[in-house]
Write a protein that binds this DNA or RNA. Structure first.
Lengths: 234, 234
DNA sequence: GGAAAAAACTGATCTGAAACAACTATTTTT
DNA sequence: AAAAATAGTTGTTTCAGATCAGTTTTTTCC
C-alpha cells in the first residue's frame, strides 16, 4: 500500500523505500540533504562494516540484513547487540569530543547499509530539534536494552542467560517461535558471555527438558512460559 | 571569578551557582522556565532518590554529593555508575513510550539534588536543538562508559575488575591518588560484580603486592602503572 | 565431488570465585 | 554504657563453568 502511493507520487527520495519515523521528521530540504550525502552499499555475510576506535565518518542505516555490534579485545568478544533492518547504527559515536566509534559492526547475512555522512547528520541534529528529540528516544531505548543485558550477564547464571538470549532472538529479532539461526554457537557464546562448549551443553539440556526443539541451525521454542521463568530466576 | 561576576549582575538564576554547559545553551526564557519548574532538595546519606520502574517525573541535577545509579532485583545488585556533582541523572527515562525510570538512584553522602520537571525538560529538548544535541553528547558519553564496564565485568577476572574500579574511582570520581571511600566493601562488590569476601581478599592481595595502601576506608594508589597493566590483561 | 577447513559436539579435568561459617571490629540504637 | 546491628575479615568447602583434548559433522571451495 505504502509502496503504491510512493511510486505514484513524486519521489522526493529514492533512498528509503519505507517511511521511518526519524526520516519523516525531516523537512523536504533536509531529506534531500541526507539523500545527497549518503550511499547504499552491500556487504557480504561476515564482512566488517566498521571498526571500534576508527574515526567515525558515517551513520549507518541498515536497510537489509542482520549485523552484530560488538567489542573485541585480545580474543575476548562481547556482542553488545544484534540489529535487524531499519535500524540506525553508529549513533553512539556522536559526541562533542573526538568521535571515535565505540564498537565494531559486522554482518551475519548479506546486508545493505546506507552510509550517511556523519557531519550532515550532526548538522541536522543541531538544526532540527524534533529530529534530535527522536534520536534521543532511540538512544535511550537502546540504553535500556543494554542495561538489561548487563544485568543478565553479570547476575544470572548460564540457564538464565541462555533463556534470555533465546527469548530475545525469538521476540525481537526473528519475531517467531521458530527460526533459522545465522549465528554460530561461538557467537551465542559471545552474546551470553559463556564458552562455546557451555552453549552447546546448555542447549542440549534445554532440548532434553523439552524447552526447545533444535536441529543444528534451526531452533524452535516449545515452552516459552518455562523459558521466561528460567530467565527470571537466573 | 565567575562567582564575582555573577553576584554583581542581575541574577537571572538563583539556581545554578556555576555555569554548566547544558544550562548555558538555553535562552534566557528557557532558563527562567527551568528555574520556575525545579526545586532543590537535600538528601541524607543512604536515602533513595528514585526507584526503578516508577514513572519518571523529574530530571535530577546533582548539585552536591555522591550517588549510585543501580539495578536491583531479588537481592542481586548491579551498580551501573557512580555520579558526582554537576551531573544530570534520569535522562535515560526520556523516550517516546511510557517513560519509566530504568534504574534506582540513592545517595552515598549527604546530597543536594535539583529536581527539574521532566515535561519542561522534554519541551526544551523539543524546541532547542543546540540543547538537545548537547544532551545527545552527554548520553553517548555515558553509554561509552557503560560499554567499558560491561566489557570489564563480563570478560575480565577479579584482578582486572578490581584494578578497573580503583583506577576509575581515582581518575573520575575523586580525582586524586588517595581518597576516603564512602562506599562499603559490599558496594565495591556490586560495582565489580564480585562477592564482598572476594573484594576484601583481592584488596588485601593488592596491598600485600604494594599496589595500594589501605586502611579501612582510606585508600591510596601506589603503583598506577602496574594497576593499569592488571586492568588491561585482566 | 572430494579434500580441507570450519563448526558442532562430547567427556574428562581443573580452577576461580562464590557460598558458608565463624569471628572481630565498628557503628548505631536505646 | 550495654545491646544490637552493621561492616569487615579469615579459613574452608563447594561447584559452576572454563579449559583441554579429542571426535564427528557440516560447510567451503578447488
Amino acid at each position: 500500500m505504502n509502496q503504491i502511493i510512493e511510486s505514484k507520487g513524486i519521489s522526493h527520495c529514492s533512498v528509503f523505500k519505507y517511511s521511518h519515523s526519524w526520516y519523516e521528521l525531516l523537512t523536504e530540504d533536509e531529506k534531500l540533504l541526507i539523500d545527497g550525502h549518503s550511499v547504499s552499499l552491500t556487504f557480504k555475510k561476515g564482512e566488517t562494516v566498521c571498526k571500534r576506535g576508527a574515526f567515525a565518518s558515517h551513520i549507518y542505516f541498515l536497510e537489509e540484513g542482520l549485523v552484530k555490534v560488538y567489542l573485541e579485545e585480545r580474543n575476548k568478544n562481547l556482542i553488545l547487540m544484534l540489529s535487524t533492518k531499519n535500524n540506525l547504527l553508529g549513533l553512539a559515536a556522536i559526541y562533542d569530543g573526538n568521535n571515535k566509534l565505540p564498537y565494531t559492526v559486522s554482518t551475519y547475512t548479506n546486508s545493505t547499509i546506507r552510509m550517511i555522512d556523519i557531519q550532515i547528520f550532526r548538522q541536522l541534529l543541531k538544526q532540527n530539534s524534533e529530529f534530535s528529540f527522536h534520536i534521543i528516544s532511540l538512544l535511550n531505548e537502546k540504553t535500556a536494552q543494554i542495561y538489561g543485558r548487563f544485568f543478565s550477564l553479570t547476575q544470572k547464571q548460564l540457564h538464565g542467560r541462555l533463556a534470555d538470549i533465546l527469548l530475545c532472538l525469538s521476540n525481537r529479532i526473528f519475531k517467531s517461535k521458530s527460526f533459522e539461526l545465522p549465528l554460530s554457537r561461538a557467537d551465542l557464546g559471545d552474546l551470553t558471555g559463556m564458552s562455546t562448549e557451555s552453549v552447546i551443553r546448555m542447549m542440549k539440556e534445554f532440548k532434553d527438558d523439552g524447552l526447545i526443539e533444535m536441529n543444528c541451525k534451526s531452533i524452535e521454542l516449545l515452552d516459552v512460559a518455562r523459558l521466561e521463568r528460567i530467565s527470571e530466576f537466573g
